[in-house]
Design a protein around this nucleic acid. Structure first.
Length: 937
RNA sequence: GCCCCGGUGGUGGAACGGCAGACACGGCGGAUUCAAAAUCCGCUGCUCGAAAGGGCGUGCGGGUUCAAGUCCCGCCCGGGGCACCA
């Protein structure tokens, strides 16, 4: 029988500092005591040791927003568990933590509360650091880096200066995104559908002089993912974002002699270019416009400027535009083509001007038909009547053969892009020979706009001299410190704070300091270098540390950073490499015999993105639905939430089980009905007054991100207090597919709490066998060693749910063994110790307590990771599947090493099989020893 | 429109092309209890059947294979990214 030995327990006299074992499993006492003890022992300090293999595990650093969120736990604790496994496997593991502390959010939040951003941020850091400690993670706090600390941003500034001196950073004028709400410019990556991704407010396009990083120089290298193991979706997103298109740049000449350069992916259709279109912001619009058209063009451009990007993208389905009155010459056939202005051409892509080929481009076709412009086909599809520009009713996009195009007539047009398409290759060659244009690659990605008209960020270490030139602040004067005695009124105070902006240049003349600050994404583009040596005073990182720890082996964090942080980080490493910042590190690596090739091309060798924890799913509403069935589902015409059966005649009444979009799964008590709620359905929701429709219903039922305003926040502190960090950690790993995430569910956590309590029972059981048997020993050892194999491989693959499941299965086996009392004490102990070790990365406190309580002096977290004994794990009998025509008809226990002949014989000996084969010719027998026999009749 | 990822019991989720539904929650039945909670034992995809056992089942339709949740083709649906991108 299981028996607890609560009353037998006494603290071990020889080591009073080990926390006392509580009488019962008391997670509060155990967790607090061990966290303190680990800290005082420096258990998680990581120090360079060239005699041991290193492992740099990194998880994205939090932004100090106030409180630690369950999402932080979800992201960080599996990362911690993985780092712990690597440590137990003998690696010297670095697992640091810090804070991404600058940024607009902190500034806005602090000012709203009437607190200084510095005070607000540092307060939050204190709070979150202590909350993080309650996770029991193995963070090495000695290496903490905080981006708003002058000791940190000195090097952010220094790196900016390096970029400037190496022509990677530059000041330039460009059309940029300006947020009137935030009173600052934003990077393209921070704009989604014309809205600022943080506040959801519209941004407008403005011509402004700003600081940029020329990330476009690295576009091609950033498209390469060779040698790194990153998720497909992140690679795809980055490739999409970079948006490489192969084609040509072609110069058209206006009648005034100006050049209009266009980019096209289809130079083979140049002979069909019957007009041109400029973006309203294009610099040549002004000069090209004929007097008679001036009013119309000016009005059009002004109207376009007033519209936000959002309206331009979403509002206009119909093409608009106006003729400038000007003409240009098509260089391939010297034809005179009219030049139009239209906002379907974007100033921010390509050259802001296009050649329009209405016959073979849908947008140009629509425009040409609307304004009565000439359509000239230059591609003839095979097996079709000749295309007629006057009568075509849509643009032809497919393959064929080139026509009406002089020198390239007759060449095949395929679906291939770039030079792989014979017609495009021929056109490019022709352009090249005639000096009319050249092969060109265009990227969608723009240079990274890094200046912000905000206060709470790293200062840009530049001064504007009286003569209008710009110079960098001398290294000796870094960091340029952000002043704290400022007043806030919605705009950045720096531009009005004379003690800050009054500077002197290198000649001693008065100068004005740059008052924009750096995008906070720059701070987080190099933070993993600072962790290596947060106090290092003569560079951003100590090459001695870097040589040992770099590169980062495993990086985990949210996929929302796909085209921001994760792209910038890659760019940064490449730029730092090209500026020579890793040369000393490389030399040290090589001196230690470590291969430095590729160590500085990419920041993170392996990347995994956890999913997101959403608010708890809303179900259980009582629904009354009237509608008609289309066979598969019920189409609702009227629907009432929390209504009564009598509300509609003949209605379906039931409980909401699940909602996806406008499809509801409704449990009527007898069956589950799928209900579709079309937009025109009449919807009544008791506590939402007024006219409701399917959108209110969605709102009402939405499973979504947790937020304070929605009141669906799961507070990790409360969970930890109630269940313990060990249980919460295990639950977060068990309840979700880690890479996917999902809605929070408060009910299932009890299963993990039971599991942890069972671990306690097993670990504290005073076991003695009643009837020891070798069979029992062999059986349990098999299960133990199979569990080691399973848990190890699942953890290495980030499959935390199945790793925990395997441990739960072992728990069940151990509980069975404790009841049967047939295994020897040695095997029982082997099971207990293996379980403690395998669980240690997931639930570090209870395992430490049990381990020490079993008389061990050293921490569980310093023990070697269990290695599976393949012989012990091997099954000697297995269940062989016998199929007839692929259907399972019998299961037979056979020796695991059975040969094909015996397996077949065993299968035919089965009575169940002969019932199915009787009277039939055996056509074929497939034997997959030792697992399966399939008899085909 | 293009790119990426998904769709499996009441729920979260398991399944090297080879026993679909591991593990857990919930549910049902039982034990214990004066009773409840906790705990323990059994059952739990749907369906026909008293049972033995059978049939059906991984979004839909085809295909490859002795064998398909898994591979291929074509759809539908959901999530994410890009998008008047020249």
């Amino acid at each position: 029988m299981l028996q607890r030995r609560f009353d037998e327990y006494l603290p071990r006299a020889e080591d009073q500092s080990i926390p006392l074992l509580p009488m019962t499993y008391d997670h509060r006492a155990i967790e607090a005591a061990w966290q303190q003890r680990w800290e005082s022992d420096g258990l998680y300090r990581s120090v360079v040791d060239w005699d041991k293999p290193k492992h740099y595990a990194l998880t994205m650093l939090p932004y100090p927003s106030g409180d630690l969120h369950i999402g932080h736990w979800y992201a960080m604790t599996p990362s911690d568990a993985r780092a712990r496994v690597m440590r137990m496997k003998g690696y010297n593991v670095l697992f640091p933590m810090g804070f991404d502390a600058f940024g607009l959010n902190a500034e806005v939040a602090a000012v709203q509360r009437g607190v200084h951003p510095a005070k607000w941020t540092w307060g939050n850091i204190e709070r979150m650091r202590s909350q993080m400690k309650s996770m029991g993670a193995m963070f090495d706090w000695e290496r903490e880096a905080i981006s708003c600390d002058p000791a940190y941003y000195k090097w952010t500034e220094w790196l900016f200066k390096q970029m400037y001196e190496h022509d990677v950073a530059y000041r330039g004028e460009a059309m940029v995104n300006w947020s009137p709400t935030l009173q600052t410019v934003l990077a393209n990556e921070q704009i989604i559908d014309g809205l600022d991704e943080r506040t959801g407010q519209p941004v407008i396009q403005k011509m402004m002089e700003q600081w940029f990083f020329s990330i476009t120089k690295y576009a091609d290298e950033l498209l390469e993912f060779e040698g790194i193991d990153w998720p497909d979706s992140i690679q795809a997103q980055q490739r999409n974002w970079i948006g490489r298109s192969e084609g040509a740049r072609v110069d058209f000449t206006t009648e005034d002699g100006d050049t209009i350069t266009v980019f096209t992916t289809r130079p083979d259709t140049l002979w069909g270019a019957t007009f041109m279109v400029l973006a309203p912001e294009h610099p040549l619009v002004e000069t090209l416009t004929a007097d008679g058209q001036r009013t119309a063009v000016t009005d059009y451009c002004e109207a376009a400027a007033r519209r936000t990007e959002l309206e331009r993208l979403e509002g206009e389905v119909d093409k608009t535009g106006v003729f400038t009155g000007g003409y240009a010459i098509n260089p391939v056939n010297s034809q005179r083509v009219p030049v139009w202005v239209a906002d379907y051409v974007l100033i921010s892509y390509g050259t802001g001007a296009i050649m329009a080929v209405p016959a073979h481009d849908e947008r140009d076709f629509e425009f040409a038909r609307k304004f009565g412009l000439t359509v000239t086909p230059t591609i003839q599809p095979a097996d079709a009547d000749p295309l007629d520009g006057a009568t075509m009713d849509e643009a032809y996009i497919g393959p064929g053969v080139v026509v009406n195009s002089g020198p390239i007539d007759g060449i095949a047009v395929t679906e291939a892009k770039g030079r792989a398409n014979p017609s495009i290759a021929a056109a490019i060659d022709w352009l090249d020979q005639h000096g009319a244009g050249k092969e060109s690659i265009n990227y969608r990605v723009r240079d990274w706009l890094i200046s912000r008209q905000r206060y709470w960020g790293s200062p840009i270490p530049m001064v504007h001299r009286e003569d209008g030139t710009i110079e960098a602040t001398a290294d000796a004067n870094l960091p340029v410190v952000l002043p704290e005695d400022v007043e806030f009124d919605g705009r950045s105070p720096l531009g009005r704070h004379e003690p800050f902006f009054a500077a002197v240049d290198s000649d001693g003349k008065p100068a004005r300091r740059e008052t924009d600050t750096l995008d906070t994404f720059m701070c987080s583009s190099w933070y993993w270098f600072r962790y290596l040596s947060p106090d290092f005073a003569s560079g951003p990182f100590d090459p001695e540390e870097a040589a040992y720890w770099l590169p980062v082996d495993v990086y985990t964090g949210g996929a929302e950073h796909a085209v921001m942080h994760l792209l910038y980080a890659r760019f940064f490493v490449k730029a730092m490499r090209d500026m020579g910042h890793f040369e000393e590190t490389r030399a040290i690596m090589e001196a230690h015999g470590k291969d430095a090739d590729g160590a500085f091309d990419e920041p993170f060798m392996l990347l995994r993105n956890q999913g997101q924890i959403l608010g708890e799913e809303r179900a259980g509403d009582r629904l009354v639905i009237d509608g008609e069935s289309d066979g598969a589902r019920l189409i609702a015409s009227k629907l009432k939430v929390d209504g009564e059966a009598a509300d509609f005649e003949g209605a379906v009444v039931g409980e909401l089980m699940r909602r996806t979009e406008n499809l509801l799964q409704v449990d009527t008590g007898e069956t589950t009905v799928t209900v579709e709620v079309p937009p025109e359905a009449v919807v009544e929701i008791a506590h939402i007054p007024g006219g409701n429709d399917v959108n209110q219903l969605k709102q009402h039922l939405e499973v979504q991100r947790m937020s304070k305003s929605k009141g669906n926040v799961v507070n990790p502190d409360d969970l930890v207090d109630e269940y313990g960090a060990d249980t919460v950690r295990a639950y977060l790993m068990f309840a979700f597919e880690w890479l996917k995430g999902g809605p929070w569910d408060n009910h299932n956590i009890i299963g993990c709490r039971r599991f942890i309590e069972d671990m306690w029972r097993i670990g504290t059981l005073d076991y003695s066998p009643k009837a020891p048997s070798d069979d029992a020993d062999i059986g349990l050892r098999r299960r133990i060693h199979q569990s080691i194999q399973k848990v190890d491989s699942e953890m290495m693959a980030f499959k935390w749910n199945t790793a925990v499941a395997a441990l739960m299965t072992l728990r069940n086996d151990m509980l069975d063994a404790s009841r049967n009392e047939a295994v020897s004490v040695d095997v029982w102990n082997e099971g207990v110790e293996t379980m403690i070790k395998l669980l240690a990365p997931i639930s570090p406190h209870i395992t430490e307590q049990l381990w020490r309580d079993r008389g061990n002096q050293s921490s569980i977290h310093l023990q070697a990771w269990p290695e599976a004994d393949a012989d012990a794990a091997r099954e000697d009998t297995i269940t062989m599947i016998v199929q007839v025509n692929g259907k399972v008809r019998d299961r037979i226990d056979v020796a695991a090493d059975i040969n094909a002949t015996d397996a077949e014989a065993a299968a035919f000996a089965s009575g169940k099989v002969s019932e199915w084969t009787r009277g039939n010719e055996i056509r074929k027998v497939i034997v997959r020893e030792p697992k399966l026999v399939n008899i085909v009749i």
